[in-house]
């Protein structure tokens, strides 16, 4: 089941990437990032059966980081929404010259 799990992980990850590229809604982009994280988690879990328990421990840490990131990221989205009345990522173009 390892190969299958890894392939599944790859497909999920790619879907997440495609979502990030296709959508403009910041919250949905965020969700796609969560998909990508979960895809990676799946790969870790699958490999932990063969390599050792550390894979599961790593997933534990990933979850903690994801939780903190979701809290902060969503707070940022709220702050931005207050400013622009929108969560469209095309409005956020301050990262330029």
């Amino acid at each position: 089941m390892l190969t299958e799990s890894l392939l599944l992980s790859a497909f999920l990850f790619t879907i997440g990437v495609a979502g990030v590229l296709l959508r403009r809604n910041a919250i949905i982009i965020f969700m796609c990032i969560e998909i990508m994280l979960n895809a990676v988690n799946l790969a870790f879990i699958a490999l932990s059966r063969y390599v050792g328990i550390e894979g599961q421990i790593f997933v534990f840490f990933v979850m903690v980081v994801a939780a903190a990131e979701a809290a902060v990221g969503l707070a940022i989205i709220i702050a931005i929404f207050r400013h622009y009345e929108s969560v469209d990522i095309q409005n956020f173009n301050l990262l330029r010259w």
Partner: peptide
Amino acid sequence: DVRPLPWRLVAGGVGLALVIQLAIAVQPAR
């Protein structure tokens, strides 16, 4: 809010390439 066609093509291309590469990367796992 789904982006127009050029972005879909880009996303499709990048996604396809990524899948192919990851699939190749899975080979050593066997």
